[in-house]
């Protein structure tokens, strides 16, 4: 898959641009890392890449077609391959199993083998019946990460995925991310340098006050 941002600008309030003339191209596979201080626009950029936000100006080209010019049905088809993990996980009312299997259910899948493997791997088995409200920040993060890993997406976009995770979970997640990047596109935003990411990245980007330094 190929996602290209062409001269993308974004403003939340119609006055101040938090992204300015972003040009970016990600394709095939590999790990892409976006770095930058708090407030530099990483989250906004990732949500545009993930087809969640529409740019105020500029285009998002997915496999040669301008995404925001497509009709609703075609947009659903394109978005199917691109998933995003929020920096602040969004969980629904219900137990952990409901939340962790939501991605698969919404797509009409009913093969849970790989999901169950991931649940064991990240040590969430004991929590499956717990209410989503009772989870710690780190556990919420794990749920939101596992539910998208289970989808085996072609494009995986992760926003500060290591926050609140303990070191053993960070290690497992790094392994999974690096393994996934062999066949898929993985984009990660982080505000601090992680050596393993830098060593494995096909490209590093630096975002400073809404402008990209590739």
């Amino acid at each position: 898959m190929e996602v290209r941002l062409e001269d993308v600008w974004f403003s939340y309030d119609g006055r101040r641009y938090v992204l300015k003339s972003i040009n970016m191209e990600i394709k095939g596979g590999g790990l892409h890392v976006v770095m930058g201080p708090n407030g530099s626009g990483k989250t906004t950029l990732l949500k545009i890449l993930s087809l969640i936000y529409k740019p105020t100006r500029g285009s998002v080209i997915v496999d040669g077609r301008s995404y925001w010019d497509l009709g609703p049905a075609e947009r659903d088809l394109v978005r199917h391959h691109i998933v995003y993990v929020h920096d602040k996980p969004i969980l629904l009312r219900g137990d952990v199993w409901y939340n962790v299997s939501l991605g698969l259910k919404l797509r009409g899948f009913n093969n849970y083998d790989y999901l169950e493997e991931l649940i064991k791997r990240y040590g969430l088995s004991e929590l499956l019946k717990s209410s989503s409200r009772s989870l710690s920040a780190g556990q919420r993060r794990l749920v939101s990460v596992i539910r998208v890993l289970a989808l085996k997406p072609r494009v995986l976009v992760l926003d500060e995925p290591f926050n609140y995770l303990d070191s053993s979970r960070v290690k497992i997640l790094l392994e999974d991310i690096i393994a996934m990047a062999e066949s898929s596109l993985v984009v990660i935003a982080t505000h601090y340098v992680v050596r393993e990411l830098r060593d494995n990245a096909v490209k590093m980007y630096e975002l400073v006050e809404g402008s990209l330094r590739g």
């Binding site: 993930s50 087809l51 969640i52 609703p72 947009r75 659903d76 978005r79 199917h80 391959h81 691109i82 998933v83 995003y84 993990v85 929020h86 969004i90 629904l92 939501l102 991605g103 919404l106 797509r107 539910r147 998208v148 989808l151 997406p153």
Partner: peptide
């Protein structure tokens, strides 16, 4: 929240 969740999971907007 729900809209962002559905879109982020690559699910159909109608969900």
């Amino acid at each position: 929240d729900v809209k962002e969740l559905v879109l982020s999971l690559g699910a159909p907007a109608g969900k």
